[in-house]
């Protein structure tokens, strides 16, 4: 099972790997593009579930893409997926930390408690869709919203295990690589996540 124990320190390494032949670079760049194109939408939704904000989710995905392509593009392509999701999860946690600290700072400040980065919403986003809602689609959207809400209430590791196993379809070994823990821990986190979600969502969900 591939492990990435040096991931943290690898970000601090300033030397690039030895240059690869041009043809090889072109080939793995193409392969990397295919990989990212395949994964980006799911990655976005996974980040959005955790962060509850589309722009933050886009930032997290873009950051993860940059870090993967910059530092790990030359790694075997079989390692990219767990690596990418491990980086993404770290980006998500960094954003959550940043948000928490900002909220604390804002409570200290005099005057209106508004974050300067809270941009005005696009008025078009507020316009109701003219097409009549399709009941089945509506029910599905509501069910997904319930699932997202319940996922956000889970401890981070349980949420991570659930989204990687269920949404991303990773097996236990790959999930363990992505989470940087043992396969046993993955099974435990996953099992607890499923039980908690079932308890919250009820039998009828």
């Amino acid at each position: 099972m591939p492990r990435f124990d040096t991931l943290n320190s690898a970000w601090m390494v300033w030397d690039s790997p030895a240059p690869a032949p041009e043809g090889a670079v072109l080939e793995y760049t193409r392969e990397l593009e295919r990989f990212l194109a395949d994964i980006e939408r799911r990655a976005f939704r996974i980040a959005q579930v955790a962060l509850r904000d589309a722009d933050d989710a886009l930032d997290a995905v873009q950051d993860a893409m940059f870090k993967l392509t910059k530092s790990y593009a030359s790694r075997p392509s079989s390692e990219w997926r767990p690596l990418f999701f491990r980086i993404l999860e770290n980006c998500i946690r960094d954003l959550q930390r940043r948000r928490t600290v900002r909220q604390r700072v804002m409570t200290w400040l005099p005057g209106p408690k508004e974050d300067p980065d809270n941009e005005a919403q696009d008025p078009l986003d507020q316009v109701a869709d003219s097409a009549p809602p399709i009941p089945e689609k509506l029910m599905q959207a509501q069910a997904m919203q319930q699932l997202e809400k319940s996922l956000r209430a889970l401890p981070a590791r349980q949420r991570e295990a659930f989204v990687l196993r269920t949404f991303e379809g990773m097996d236990v070994a790959e999930t363990a690589s992505a989470m940087g823990c043992s396969q046993g821990s993955v099974k435990t986190h996953y099992s607890r996540a499923v039980h908690a979600l079932r308890a919250q969502l009820g039998e009828v969900w």
Binding site: S16, A37, E40, F44, F66
Partner: peptide, 22 residues
């Protein structure tokens, strides 16, 4: 969202291909 993801991917690939040792 799709468009912004495509832009993010392109930017990441371009940055990687043009990166130099810091």
């Amino acid at each position: 969202i799709r468009s912004r993801l495509t832009q993010a991917r392109s930017a990441a690939l371009e940055a990687a291909s043009s990166s130099r040792p810091a």
